[in-house]
């Protein structure tokens, strides 16, 4: 992981410069905070409302990670079943695709009719996170080296041994790629569902706080909640990138030289 300092400094510099420009534009033009709050005010709001916002952050993060966990268990299990039997794959893949291509915004209100709000949010986040894990995992399981499969057959390995010692490790890089995508999507799914639920007066996640602050024309708080959502997305991405690196750096080409 040989990266020069400039790789970190440059994006940070651009980010700070943007904030500085924003601050300057707001101050010079004396734009009122209910139109566009300055970054400094957003920061101050973040600190002032931390009690409310941190609670909402925890709710959203918990739902996101619960959905990811469920999607991982479900996606990996189904992918293993697909690898075992063409018939299972043929029967269930179309269903998974239909769920994947139907926009989650359209499903969320329907789920809210049948499910309690928090459960509906969880299900939405699960639905969007599930498919990338399933499809990447299925691809990964099928990608094991053919000669290695022959070798396992030569030594009369059981299908279980072949799965554990060969197909699962071969699928790991694909799975981690899917997990990285699913992490971002789970957050989006949770937010979308919270917004749908929030307008019905339910839930207490970050998106709900945005909707609520919007009703009260508390624009700085809307931005503060938004900043937290972005930060969560970045955090999730970083966690899985690091996980990937930790698990693959020793052997897989994706984490060679260029590091992360």
């Amino acid at each position: 992981m040989r990266r020069s300092l400039i790789d970190y400094v440059l994006p940070l510099f651009v980010f700070l410069a943007m904030l500085g420009l924003w601050e300057a534009v707001v101050r010079i033009n004396a734009i009122p905070p209910y139109v566009l709050p300055a970054p400094s005010l957003i920061g101050a709001t973040l600190v002032k409302d931390w009690d409310t916002l941190s609670g909402a952050l925890m709710v959203t993060l918990r739902i996101t990670f619960q959905a990811l966990l469920a999607a991982t268990i479900g996606g990996v299990t189904l992918a293993i079943l697909f690898a075992r039997s063409r018939w299972i794959e043929r029967s269930f893949l179309p269903l998974a695709v239909v769920l994947q291509v139907t926009p989650i915004v359209a499903i969320a209100p329907l789920l809210l009719v049948y499910l309690e709000a928090n459960t509906a949010v969880l299900v939405c986040a699960f639905l969007v996170a599930f498919f990338p894990i399933l499809s990447n995992m299925a691809l990964g399981l099928a990608s094991a080296d053919h000669n290695l499969i022959d070798l396992f057959e030569l030594y009369k390995a059981s299908r279980w041994k072949q799965l554990v010692l060969l197909r699962l490790p071969a699928a790991l890089p694909y799975f981690l790629g899917g997990l990285r995508i699913a992490g971002g999507l789970a957050l989006i799914g949770a937010i979308v569902a919270e917004i749908a639920a929030g307008s019905a007066g339910q839930g207490a996640g970050l998106a709900f706080r945005i909707v609520e602050a919007g009703f009260r024309l508390n624009i700085p708080r809307m931005f503060a909640a938004l900043a937290l959502i972005s930060a969560s997305g970045v955090l999730i991405y970083l966690i899985f990138t690091l996980l990937s690196w930790a698990l693959l750096s020793r052997w897989h080409d994706s984490s060679r030289e260029r590091g992360l």
């Binding site: 000669n147 390995a157 790991l172 020793r250």
Partner: peptide, 19 residues
């Protein structure tokens, strides 16, 4: 045809492990 995720030791272990 080695398993890239496994050390040299683990690769050579494979036939014995499967036995």
């Amino acid at each position: 045809v080695l398993m890239p995720w496994a050390s040299v030791f683990d690769n050579v272990w494979l036939p014995l492990r499967l036995a």
